[in-house]
């Protein structure tokens, strides 16, 4: 394991621990409750990331690491996987538009605040505009 990486993992672990401590034991008042939550969450994530990467590098030998990286690169660039991801993305997008539309109608019938309904409707509109824009963008390049 390179020394530079070791310092990075140590920094992440310590930073995570400090953030967690600050979030849990220092920011205790109600006024900073959100900051406290952010500190705890971010701190825990950084701590786990630092420790996890440290052990991951320690346990995987350099040769194994190179082979694994190569395999990961192949899987990422594999054309069938790319086509699958694109197909899945398109289907998920279709389903989400329907779900968001149902959500807008449900919220309207329930008498929810206009702001909330408008925000959900705005997401649908942004999705549609993005779809149109990206269609023409990629259309010109393909």
């Amino acid at each position: 394991m390179k020394k530079g990486k070791l310092w990075l993992y140590a920094f992440l672990t310590v930073a995570g621990a400090v953030l967690f401590y600050v979030g849990e034991f220092v920011l205790v008042s109600e006024a900073v409750k959100q900051l406290s939550g952010l500190g705890i969450g971010l701190g825990a994530a950084l701590f786990c990331l630092g420790i996890g990467k440290f052990f991951d590098d320690l346990l995987v030998s350099k040769t194994e690491g190179e082979t694994r990286k190569h395999r990961i690169a192949i899987e990422r660039n594999d054309e069938r996987n790319i086509r699958l991801k694109e197909k899945v993305g398109a289907k998920v997008n279709q389903v989400l538009i329907y779900l968001l539309s149902i959500l807008v109608l449900t919220l309207s019938f329930m008498g929810a605040k206009s702001v909330i309904i408008l925000m959900v409707a705005a997401i649908i509109v942004i999705q549609l505009f993005l779809a149109i824009f990206l269609f023409y963008y990629y259309g010109k390049r393909m």
Partner: peptide, 26 residues
Amino acid sequence: LADRLEVSRQTISSLENGRYNPSIML
């Protein structure tokens, strides 16, 4: 074969089963 062509083994399997059609490049 997958290693040499730099694709996943699943791609080769799907190609052989006729479930997947390759791109012209592949």
